[in-house]
Every structure is written in C-alpha cells, then in structure tokens.
C-alpha cells in the first residue's frame, strides 16, 4: 500500500517538460503495474463489489433496529454449516496452489472439481435456508433485517455464480488437458483462488454483522450497562 502511494505521489511530482525527465520517460514501457490485464480487471471488480456490499451493510445499519423480532436468525441454523462449506472451499483452493507448485496435476483436477461442487453445495444450502426462513413466516418484506438479509444473500449468490461461470471455463480446460497445459493455467487458477477468498471475506463480514449489530445483541449489551 505504501509502495502504491509512493508511486502515485512520485508520479504526480514529475515535471514531464524537463529534458532530464524526458530521458527517463522515453524508456518507459507504457505499463503502470506489472500485472496482466485479466488480473487488473479482477482487482477493479473487487473494488466495485466492495463498494456495493459496503453500501448494503451501511443501509442495514442505518435502518436498525427493525420493528419486529429477528430471533429466528440467532438460533442455531443452516447458515453456520454453509459458512463451514465456504471455509472448506478456501482450504481446497490453498491445496490446489500447493499441488500446482508440486506439479501434481491429478490432485489439481480432483480438487478443482471439489471446489466447484462445494460452491454449488453452498448455494444449495443458501436456497434451502431461504425456504426454511419463509416457512417460519419471515419473508423479504417482514422487516428491514430480513429485507437486507435476502438482498445480501441474493447478491452474494449472484457474485458466486459469476465466479462459477469462470470456474466452469477454467476447469473444463484443465480437465481436458495434460500436465504442461495445466501448469500454464496457473494464472487463471490463482485469479479464481483470489476471487473465492474475496467471497469468503465478504461473507464473513456479513455473517459477523448480522450477529453483532442485531437488536437482540444490542439489547443484551444495553442490559450489561444498566
């Protein structure tokens, strides 16, 4: 980060009209960062997604406390299992990275499949949880707590589906090809891994928020003070 700032300010202080500067500038490659355009795109998408999700978080906090009870979510439920599933995905991604280094392509293929399967399992679990919620009478219009919950999970799910689309592209390539080709795909696989890590972080933030900034918890904290 500090490097980035240094680079930025260093750039902004250049005097491009001076002859000494021109000699340096003439050798410039025309590239600002030493990363591929694909990776730049992924990073920019993270930026946009971060703004999007933080706005939803903010709007959730803004409308607290909801005027109806939210205790249903606080009971032990499927969400905890789904969170565990997401953790496993990240775990398998780290395994894939290791296996790539060791060039154990068979394991890479297997784990890539597991990652996809677990992601679909997560989505399936989320949908089941939606049905459980609705069965218990908590709809999207019930109160602001649930409205935000549904909207967030839906967007997060869409975000994940977008990732799965690229997972499909990469893994179909990987499954068909032999060892050397697979190693060539390392860049895309590491981009995927980055993507899933991001998904996990966003999910954890959300998960913490609905449990911490919740009127039941707030009430409990208040009771501690008084």
């Amino acid at each position: 980060m500090s490097n980035l700032l240094k680079k930025l300010f260093g750039t902004l202080l250049q005097k491009p009209w001076e002859t000494e500067r021109a000699a340096i500038d003439n050798a410039h490659e025309g590239k600002t960062f030493n990363i591929s355009v694909q990776k730049s795109a992924v990073i920019i998408i993270f930026g946009i997604a971060t703004v999007l999700f933080s706005l939803i978080f903010t709007s959730y906090l803004y409308t607290l406390p909801p005027d109806q009870d939210t205790n249903y979510l606080l009971r032990p439920n499927l969400l905890w299992l789904n969170t565990l599933v997401l953790f496993f995905v990240t775990y398998f991604f780290s395994k894939i990275t290791n296996d790539l280094k060791k060039k154990e392509t068979l394991k890479v293929k297997r784990n890539l499949l597991i990652v996809g399967g677990l992601s679909y399992l997560f989505l399936f679990g989320q949908v089941i949880f939606w049905f459980q919620l609705m069965k218990s009478g908590n709809y999207v219009s019930t109160n602001s707590y649930f409205s935000n919950f549904y909207v967030f999970t839906a967007l997060h799910g869409l975000h994940l589906l977008g990732g799965l689309f690229f997972w499909g592209k990469v893994s179909s390539k990987v499954l068909k090809s032999d060892q050397n080709k697979i190693l060539e795909e390392e860049k895309s696989i590491s981009a995927l891994s980055l993507y899933w890590t991001y998904l996990l972080i966003v999910w954890l933030m959300f998960f913490l928020m609905i449990y911490i900034f919740n009127d039941a918890v707030i009430a409990w904290c208040k009771s501690l003070i008084t």
Binding site: D25, G30, V37
Partner: peptide
Amino acid sequence: LQARTRGMT
C-alpha cells in the same frame, strides 16, 4: 493504466 505506448508516462 496498462496499455499505453512506449514513452507515454
């Protein structure tokens, strides 16, 4: 950011 030509700082 990434696709300028040579010399274009």
